[in-house]
Simulated scan of single mutants.
Amino acid sequence: MSATPNAAAGLKSTRWALLFGNFVMGAGLQVAAGTLQDLARSLQVTVASAGQLISIGAVVVCVAAPLATWLARGRDMRGLLTVALLWFGIGHAACAVATSFLPLAVARALSMLAAALFTPQAAAAIAVMSPPKERASAIAFIFIGWSASAVICAPVSSYVGEVLGWPFAFGLVAALALLAAAVLWRSMPPGVTTPPVSVATWKAALREPALVAVVLVTALQGAGQFTVLSYFLPFCKQVLGATAAQVSLAYLWFGVLGVTGNVLLVRLIGRLGPVRSVNAVLCSMAVSLVAWPLVITVPALLLLVVPWALASFASNSAQQARLGHLAPQLTPALMAMNTSAIYLGQAAGAAGGGALLASHGMGALSWAGLAWMLVALALSAWAGRRLQVHGPRSATGAIV
């Protein structure tokens, strides 16, 4: 990118447009969890069965993200990302008019194909557009959209689901996606392309154990979070006896802290470095999971969730920045792998949490989440040490 004022202004508007796009993708994720109780009641399925909507979408993105990266090779990012947002909107509109669980599950699976394309390609595009020194913070910035969606979409979808019904919440996501498509088309300059992803690129990314380990950290921490977060609404209602207003307040509190944590990450990641930032957020989430059995009232929940909430969405931003920093030439492939890992973790957490919920009840969820998180922390520390001592084996131009 040229350093002219026009180029700088274009980069700034693109960053905000991609942030808004990620906000919409996060809204699509949040809407299923936020309306879980009404979905189960309306469609006459169990809460655990309704929770599998999260797993279904996650599995689709996990599988489709690498294929979407191949599809995106050499294409204009402006048009491709706009189409992804349009598809996301149409898919969620189809979800809103579904009258039974099976059509809803199919529509959700198809709509989440857009997330498989948008999330990694947005990160790859902003990495290409940004100066090298600003690359990590730029990637982290656009992922503020994910945490912002928790502030607004989780409490709003929870409240709308309780008051108006879950179809209205899905319809709201559809409208936001169409708006985001228009904003992105107007804001992003044409002609932005990402480095081509060849078979050699995938081999280079996959043959370095430390890079693969960093990607697996994303999946493991996601599983730890979503083992509990997928069933946050029924936990508040059934265990804490929370009202609809209290549940919305809890979601809002979690989201506000999530945005705060992500903003802090953008400011501090250049000083701390991506590796320390990732390890710090993993430790922070583990603290809350250790203390989770003490959550017996809504005030206790609001207090003990603070470390987790601050780190929750910052964790994905830190991981994306870490990968973009380690191997810039492999960014499209690594971002696709990391996106797959994000949703693999969500699928594993939602599915595993549902199985534990059915067999052992709510009390088992936090301990399972903690186990996932501790494994993620150990693997992250190992990968950091390996790259610091040995460096990447593959000739990728990586920097440690």
Rank of each mutant, 00 (worst) to 15 (best):
A174K: 00
V156A: 15
Y159K: 05
F168P: 11
F170V: 15
S157L: 02
G161F: 08
L164V: 07
V128N: 04
V151Y: 04
A169R: 00
V128Y: 02
A140L: 15
G171I: 11
L178K: 10
F170C: 03
A154T: 01
C153W: 01
M129N: 01
P132N: 13
R135C: 05
L172Q: 13
P132A: 13
L176Y: 00
A174F: 03
V156H: 03
L179H: 08
I142E: 05
A148M: 10
V156P: 02
A177S: 12
P167I: 03
V173R: 00
I152L: 13
P131M: 03
S158V: 06
I139P: 00
V128W: 03
W166L: 08
V163E: 15
G145E: 01
S157N: 12
S147G: 08
V173K: 01
W166D: 03
M129S: 01
K133I: 14
V183L: 13
Y159W: 11
M129A: 03
L179D: 05
A177E: 03
P132I: 13
A181T: 15
V128R: 07
S130A: 12
P155I: 15
I139M: 10
S157W: 07
V151R: 02
A177C: 09
G145Q: 05
I139T: 05
M129E: 00
I142Q: 09
P167Q: 02
C153Q: 01
V183M: 13
A154L: 03
W146G: 09
S137F: 08
K133T: 13
F141A: 14
S130G: 08
G165F: 11
A180M: 12
L176A: 01
Y159C: 08
F170K: 00
S137M: 13
S149E: 02
V163Y: 12
I144P: 00
P167G: 02
A175E: 08
A175G: 07
F141P: 06
A154N: 04
M129D: 01
V183S: 05
G161W: 10
V183K: 10
F143P: 05
F168E: 15
F170W: 03
V173W: 00
G161I: 05
K133V: 14
V183H: 04
A136F: 11
L176H: 01
A169W: 06
F170D: 12
A180V: 12
A181M: 12
I139D: 00
V163L: 05
